[in-house]
Design a protein around this nucleic acid. Structure first.
Length: 378
RNA sequence: UCCCCGGUAACUCAAUGGUAGAGUAACUCCCUGUUAAGGAGUGAGUUGUAGGUUCGAGUCCUACCCGGGGAG
């Protein structure tokens, strides 16, 4: 069961309020979707993720295939039972790992750039540790070095076995260093894979196609037109959008204009809290980001007054809560000083408290922006 | 009182008589569909003190100071 309904369109921006229904419950959109790569929002159990305001989670096909393997998850009753999460679940296809374990690893960089790069990856280039072919991608297991292959068929099969409510088509997330020629070839491959994923679809799970195209608006629009014409239940928007932050809003807005209006759009892997308003105003319904847990474990908290690195010594004597205007349990009971002490001592609880606050803060930020759309304020 | 061992960056320790280094901590910056409880960078020293030998001493010699151990 899958349905998406737009409840309200803003007359001030492309923002829209909606409700997405799955067999495991509804999602009020636009919504932030926390990342639970290995079937857990890092440092938290599923109840805590829910308490922090999460409506849905997104797990990863590649990671769960490697450990514990989809067969074990299925025998445990499927992903929902396995991780004791009764709400909507998504699985990402492993397409991002084509980048992160490929060119991303080679060049020691993430998918976002801050300035114009000096070197470019050109057509025909291959990453050092993986091989990208027409059919899919050859990886080596980080566990035992065994050869493994992930393509559209394989990804869809694993995702079916895992049993999330929403699945994603297998794509190539191109490196931000890719030149136009590489991007065009990669895009054709991603479009081909999208079709092959549709051939493997099942009736129990929704399938979202993924739009790519890098920072090139024309390629983005071409991708949105091609993927948008395919019978997906929704669409993921992947990759990067240029080193200038304003280009994200420009490109995402343009893509939302050319994707089917009645279907949900999920912005993949983007979402620092200061960008939420732009993301909403661009017409996005769902988006996920590792930021709350990733930054939390590294000691950075997001607050209404900006980011703070609680590992810094000056926070040890700080008796204030992480964010005075936050309603989360961490801010209710614990001080920056305590969390700082735990983080500086490498206590796992410090990472957890920071992660939990961050997650709550981001979910609350999304709820607040939904409220603003409701009140014609966004 | 004597004997032995030691004293080098904030901490723990390196350095055949030839430019004093590392790890940790500190500080700064970074992290966006998790290769990440991670990464990059910076500052950091009268080598216990005072002499001596030497072209050159953290290193060898003498005295003293401090710490640890042993003998009596």
């Amino acid at each position: 069961m899958f349905a998406f309904r737009v409840l309200k369109r803003s007359n001030r921006s492309r923002a829209r309020l909606g409700i997405l229904k799955t067999a495991h419950g509804e999602i009020e959109t636009p919504a932030f979707v926390p990342v639970a790569t290995r079937a857990s929002v890092r440092t938290m159990d599923s109840d805590e993720a829910a308490k922090a305001g999460s409506q849905a989670l997104i797990c990863n096909t590649y990671h769960l295939h490697i450990a514990p393997g989809e067969a074990i998850v299925r025998k445990a009753g499927g992903l929902h039972d396995f991780m004791h999460w009764n709400g909507p679940l998504m699985t990402d296809s492993g397409g991002f790992q084509v980048f992160s374990l490929g060119f991303g690893s080679d060049h020691g960089m993430g998918k976002m750039l801050k300035e114009e790069p000096e070197r470019r990856i050109t057509e025909g280039a291959q990453p050092m540790h993986i091989e990208i072919t027409e059919d899919g991608v050859h990886f080596r297991s980080p566990v035992d070095g065994a050869r493994m292959f992930l393509g559209p068929k394989e990804s869809m099969h694993i995702q079916k076995t895992l049993g999330a409510d929403i699945t994603f088509a297998f794509d190539e997330c191109p490196s931000p260093l890719s030149d136009r020629a590489y991007l065009k070839t990669s895009l054709e491959r991603t479009h081909l894979w999208a079709k092959q994923c549709l051939d493997e679809r099942n009736t129990k799970q929704a399938l979202f196609g993924i739009v790519q195209g890098g920072a090139h608006k024309d390629l983005r629009l071409e991708s949105a037109r091609i993927i948008g014409a395919m019978p997906f239940e929704g669409f993921g928007i992947g990759g990067e959008f240029g080193y200038d932050k304003r280009s994200l809003k420009r490109i995402v807005s343009a893509m939302c204009d050319s994707l089917p209006k009645e279907k949900p759009r999920h912005l993949l892997g983007v979402g620092h809290p200061e960008d939420f308003a732009h993301i909403f105003a661009s017409g996005i319904d769902l988006f996920d980001c590792i930021a709350p847990t990733h930054y939390g474990r590294h000691g950075t908290i997001f607050t209404s007054r900006g980011r703070f690195d609680l590992r810094k010594e000056r926070f040890l004597k700080d008796r204030k809560p992480p964010d005075a205007s936050c309603k989360c349990e961490v801010c209710k009971y614990y001080s920056r000083g305590y969390i700082s002490h735990l983080l500086r001592s490498h206590e796992l609880t410090g990472m957890k408290l920071a992660s939990y606050h961050n997650l709550y803060f981001l979910n609350a930020q999304a709820a607040f922006l939904r409220h603003r759309i409701k009140n014609d304020d966004l």
